[in-house]
Design a protein around this nucleic acid. Structure first.
Lengths: 362, 362
DNA sequence: CTGAAAGCGCTTACAG
DNA sequence: CTGAAAGCGCTTACAG
C-alpha cells in the first residue's frame, strides 16, 4: 500500500489561524454567525420582516424584498434551523433507519428517499442498525431527539421499546421493505418476501429442476421469509427442503457466494439448481462454477434476488427477482410528506410487488 | 410486474385515529411531547437538575439520578435537540456532501463516516450533488442552515459562492477524496488521482501492452485527473493518447462498460489493453469480451479502478487500484471530531494513497 | 404591508 | 449537590 502522509500547501488562507476551532467569544455561546437581527439592522427593518421575506415572500413588498435578499446574500446569512424548529415546531427533517448503507439494496432505497425529500425541501437524517434490533432501539431514540417531522424504519420486526418510542413520538411513520408479515404501526410500503421466495421456487420447479438448493447470507427476517416461501413450494412438490440448504449470518458478498456454493457442491454434487438470496451471492456462485467448468444452466442453474446492476450483463445473464428498491424509498417518503402536508393518502399500505426476470442462468 | 396495492389489517391500533397528523392543540405549536419540565414535575425537582442528570450524570446524586432515569424511561422522554442546539450552540451534527449515494464508492465512504460519528455520538446529515457544482452550492447552503458542528465535502472543485458560504460558516471542514489537486479550504483527506492513473499506465506499459485504451464514465474532476495521469505516462512512452480514448458523462455502470468496449473494439480492434475508470465499467468490459470469445488478458487486458467487492472473484480476477474509501470517510470524520473536541491533529492533510492490485485480467 | 411581544425547550453561568 | 434567571434565534398570532 502506498502510504505517504504529506502536507500540501494550502491554496488560500482561511480567515482564522486556528481553522476549525470556534471563536469562543469570551464566555458567550455566540458563534459569530450572522443572525436574523443582524440582517434586520443592516436593512433597517424588523427581524420579523426578514423572516417573512424568506419564508413567505409574497407578503413583503417587492422593493423591500429585493433589498433584503441582497443583504442576505452579502452577509452570507444562513437561517438557524434549530431556532426555526423550536419556534415553528417543525424541523423539515425526516429520519431514516436502515440496516446498513453499504448494502446496495439500501443505498438504492435511500436514493429513492433522498430524491423525494430534496424535492420537498426536507433534510434526511439516517442511521444504520447493522441488522440488530438493539441497535435499532438506540438509533431510533437518538433520531427522535432531533424531532424529525416523520420517520422511516426498515422491516416489521422491532423491540417493544422501539414501538413505544415511535408511538410516543407521535409523528408519521412508514415501515418499509416488507408487507403482510407483521404488525404495522402506521404506514407500510414494500412487498411480500414470502411470496417472492415462493415464486422463484415455482419458476425453478417449472423449469424441471428437482435437486434445488438455497444459499442464504445475512439471514435477517426478510431473508428468512424469502427462504420460507421458497421452501414451502419445494415441500409442496415433495422435494428436499433441508438437505441442500445452506445459510449464514455473514453479510452477503460476491466472495461469500463463491465459498458457499463450493461448500454446497462438495457435499451435494447432485444439486441442479440454487437460489441465492441476494444477487451478489449469485455472482460469486456463477464465478465459482465457471472456475469448476460447470456449464450454467445445463449442469447447474443459478438464480438471484434483487436484480442489481450487473445481473443483466453477467455471463450467463442472471435469472433473478427484481425488487422495487428505489420505488419503496420514494413512495414511502411520499406517504410521509403527504401526511405532513395533510394531503390524503389513498392507502396506508402499499404493496409494490416484485418481478421475476427469467434470463439465461436458470 | 406484479402490482397489487392492497390493504393489510393493522396488527395494533395506534392511539390516534388520524395517524401521522399532529394533534394541533388549538392555536398552540405544542406537539404534546414530553418536555424537560414534565419530567421535572414528575420527579419533583427543577428542570435544570434533569438536564444535568442526562448530560453530566456525575453531578447529580445517585439516588436522585436513579429516580430521574426511571421517570425519563416511563414517560418516554426524548430531549429536543433543536432546543439543546439553540441553547448550547452545538448540534452534534456533521454534514456530508457527496456526489451520489447510489455509487458504491460513496456508500463506502459514507459508511466510514457513519461508523466514526456513531462512536462519538454525532448525527450525520447528508446531501447529494449529483456531480453538479450548482447543486452543491444549494445543498451546502441548506446543510449549513442546520448549523452542523462540522462539514465534509467531496473534491477540491467548488464554486466561489460555495467557498464563501463554507468560510462564513466558520466550522471545521474536510474536503475528501482528492489531495494535491487544488485549493484546500481547511482540512483535506484523500489521495492523488493523477498519480493513481499514472501508476496504472506504468503497470500496463511494464506488462508490454502498447495499444492502450481508456474508458471513462461520469468524467467528473477526479476521473479527469486519473485520465490525465494515465495519458501523461502513455505520452512519455510515445504512445497514442487520444486514439483509443473513449469517455462519456453518463454514470458508470456494468452495462455501460459493455457498450463502451464494444464501441471501442469495433473502431480499433487492435487495442490490447484497456484501463476502465471504475471497476463496474471493467466488469462490463470483461463480460462483453467473454461474449466475443476474446481471451483476457492474452488478446485484451482489462484493468479497473476502486477494487470493488466482485473484483477478486470475477473471471479473470480484475487488475485494479484499491482506493481507501472507508478510510477516507473514517479519517476525515476523525479530523473533524478532533478539531471539535479541541484535540490536536497531526496534520490537516492526509494522503491515504492507493494500491495497485495486480491480478489476472491485465 | 410591517412590527412589538411572547414563547418554543433547552443550557449556561452564577448562587447558595 | 440543586435551583432561579436569562438567553439561544427564530416564528406565531395579533395589532395597526
Amino acid at each position: 500500500m502506498v502510504l505517504f502522509p504529506q502536507n500540501y500547501k494550502k491554496g488560500i488562507e482561511v480567515s482564522r489561524d486556528n481553522a476549525g476551532v470556534k471563536p469562543a467569544k469570551s464566555g458567550s455561546r455566540a458563534k459569530g454567525r450572522i443572525t436574523l437581527n443582524d440582517v434586520a439592522k443592516t436593512v433597517g427593518v424588523s427581524a420579523i420582516t426578514i423572516s417573512r421575506a424568506l419564508n413567505d415572500p409574497d407578503k413583503v413588498k417587492p422593493v423591500l424584498r429585493a433589498r433584503i435578499e441582497k443583504a442576505v446574500a452579502e452577509l452570507n446569512y444562513v437561517p438557524n434551523r434549530a431556532a426555526r424548529s423550536l419556534a415553528a415546531g417543525s424541523t423539515q427533517t425526516l429520519a431514516v433507519v436502515i440496516p446498513t448503507i453499504s448494502n446496495t439494496v439500501f443505498s438504492n432505497v435511500l436514493k429513492g428517499i433522498y430524491d423525494q425529500t430534496i424535492e420537498h425541501n426536507y433534510e434526511v437524517l439516517f442511521a444504520n442498525t447493522y441488522y440488530s434490533l438493539q441497535n435499532e432501539e438506540k438509533v431510533i431514540s437518538k433520531l427522535l431527539a432531533q424531532y424529525p417531522d416523520g420517520i422511516i424504519t426498515t422491516g416489521l420486526d422491532m423491540t417493544e421499546r422501539s414501538k413505544e418510542l415511535l408511538q410516543a413520538a407521535n409523528i408519521p411513520l412508514v415501515q418499509i421493505m416488507e408487507v403482510g408479515a407483521g404488525e404495522v404501526l402506521d404506514m407500510n410500503v414494500g412487498f411480500s418476501h414470502f411470496d417472492a421466495g415462493a415464486s422463484m421456487a415455482e419458476y425453478l420447479l417449472a423449469q424441471g429442476y428437482r435437486n434445488i438448493g438455497f444459499l442464504g447470507a445475512q439471514m435477517d427476517f426478510r431473508s428468512q421469509r424469502r427462504m420460507q416461501g421458497f421452501l414451502s413450494k419445494l415441500a409442496d412438490a415433495n422435494l428436499e427442503t433441508d438437505k441442500y440448504l445452506m445459510t449464514t449470518t455473514i453479510p452477503s458478498s460476491v466472495k461469500l457466494g463463491g465459498h458457499m456454493i463450493a461448500d454446497l457442491l462438495s457435499e451435494h454434487p447432485q444439486v441442479d439448481a440454487v437460489f441465492c438470496n441476494n444477487d451478489d451471492l449469485a455472482y460469486g456462485a456463477i464465478f465459482e462454477c465457471q472456475r469448476r467448468k460447470l456449464r450454467i444452466p445445463e449442469q447447474i442453474a443459478i438464480a438471484g434476488f434483487n436484480d442489481l446492476d450487473a445481473s443483466a450483463s453477467i455471463n450467463p445473464s442472471l435469472t433473478t427477482i427484481r425488487t422495487p428498491l428505489y420505488e419503496i424509498g420514494n413512495r414511502a417518503t411520499e406517504l410521509l410528506i403527504n401526511t405532513l402536508k395533510r394531503r390524503p393518502n389513498l392507502s396506508k399500505t402499499l404493496d409494490l410487488g416484485f418481478e421475476l426476470i427469467a434470463r439465461d442462468s436458470a
